[in-house]
Design a protein around this nucleic acid. Structure first.
Lengths: 280, 280
DNA sequence: CAGTGAAGGTGGCATAGACCACTGGTGACG
DNA sequence: CGTCACCAGTGGTCTATGCCACCTTCACTG
């Protein structure tokens, strides 16, 4: 029989488009047919179908559940921003933030971290990996590196509650002053995905921050990964001749520095807030 | 015979780790063995090896070139930030920015865009898709939506050179005043990947911006996608009691608003710069 | 000597099939 | 009636294989 030429050169794309239409006719959370069923219906092999589904999973359209099936994602896909009409009302960082220490050791700085902190590669640092939670849901992983001699006697429990910067000042006499932070997009690797509860290769934000005290001495090098499906950065930009009204000068926080670490501070200057999206 | 248990449960992970070690012993740009060679050497099938390579390609460690081979990525991998010791010296947005208009039409706003711009869904808007280039290399795609009655007679050529905001003021008497912008991580789809020249599902930054003029009227809704392997955001945060010296108050720009669109403005307030990484 | 075209190697796409791990229901058993 | 073992169905992983498109190389041709 006459084999009709495919609309798209790639079967994968044809399958993806079919699934996108299918998803749009469903409600969030609805189940969709099984992989094997879809293979038969679309006349493609399972690897081909799975590769199409992979794409929709990493873009946040579908979710898979082992042994149960595939479902339309609850939260809207990333492209469909929820920056609704009321753009004036900047959403604040919401939810209650908590921490869970995953690892707490003292190790040698090594070449890379030593260079960052301006200390010898052989100098000892306190290395802390902690999970940051919002309303008990994993939001980010934070890897802290602090010169060990700055924080003698620091205990893992100290990192689970309260403001680390306040703690530094009150207990160790270290006054944090400024930080340089970089933000870039990334995708989760296996470990990150497992820890923050998203599929591998999901979009995420990678923060890197070097914090200095009032004497210009580096006191903290942080490297953190924020899940991309629940976190985004919102900023208000002043473009015109007069500065816009800054309604919420307090209760604002820097992306990558959860509220608990800046409690009571009102003197941050960058007009940025990190926003947590509802779990849906 | 006694089959040795794999160090990792997944062959894919074993292959990935092997490749990571291989990469670290190479210089950027070096070729690595072909897929079929590696399959034989590691005793895995080609799909398995390819899936491991896929992961390293999305994370920016390897690059594939059809018909030529696989190579160690030139730019350092995303995790290895180049925020070298000299953290005080904030790198500026570099390179010469240019634009190429991909699409220029007048269409009805539609429900979503109409809501953003506070106009009727049936109202006409000028829709512009343009490629933003740095030193003639694609850096981002920008999708602009402007109410058509604000910019009568606007021509595609007007969008290829100069500052759009200056143009709005000089030619149409529209004074942009402030904007609310959101930033979130995403991955490229097929079209975006093709346009900015990266593999599908590569990390990218998604910007969404709603700009208003001095009367509070929305004048521009922009949605743009920046490649993640060449672009990142660097910000200086003031944490202490005294504000840090702001050395470079001029020549600084907002991420997502290339320098050409803010030429001559010195009154931006957020302490942020977007940094373009060298092509390598 | 310059141009050309075939060959071989490379990655890109797709197939068919097998086995494993996990889930949820169902039916047998106490 | 409650409990538990089992089983069918699901996604997760891996194999072996084929064909195609692309690039480089090099011998051949003009």
């Amino acid at each position: 029989m006459a084999s009709e030429p495919p609309r798209s050169a790639l079967k994968r794309e044809r399958v993806r488009d079919y699934l996108m239409e299918l998803v749009e006719s469903c409600a969030p959370g609805d189940p969709i047919p099984s992989e094997r069923t879809l293979c038969e219906r679309l006349g493609v092999s399972r690897p081909t179908l799975r590769s199409a589904v992979d794409e929709l999973v990493t873009t946040g359209v579908l979710v898979r559940e082992h042994g149960r099936g595939m479902f339309v994602a609850r939260a809207k896909i990333t492209q469909e921003l929820a920056l609704d009409g009321q753009a004036h009302r900047l959403p604040q960082a919401s939810g209650t933030w908590a921490s869970r220490v995953l690892e707490f050791t003292t190790v040698q700085a090594g070449a890379r971290v030593g260079r960052k902190l301006h200390i010898s590669p052989a100098a000892e640092i306190t290395y802390i990996a902690r999970l940051r939670l919002v309303d008990d849901e994993p939001m980010a992983i934070e890897y802290l590196h602090v010169p060990a001699d700055l924080v003698p006697g620091l205990h893992a429990d100290d990192m689970e509650s309260g403001d680390f910067y306040d703690f530094l000042r009150a207990r160790h006499g270290v006054h944090v002053h400024e930080a340089v932070q970089s933000i870039e997009p990334t995708v989760t690797n296996d470990e990150e995905a497992r820890l923050i509860g998203v599929p591998v290769l999901s979009p995420a934000l990678l923060f890197e921050r070097l914090t200095k005290d009032d004497t210009g001495r580096p006191v903290e090098y942080v490297h953190s990964v924020y899940r991309g499906d629940r976190y985004r950065i919102v900023s208000r930009l002043a473009l015109g001749d007069a500065a816009p009204a800054t309604a919420q000068s307090a209760d604002r926080h820097h992306p990558g520095i959860p509220p608990g670490d800046l409690a009571g501070r009102g003197d941050v200057t960058a007009l940025m807030v990190g926003e947590v999206q509802p779990a849906g």
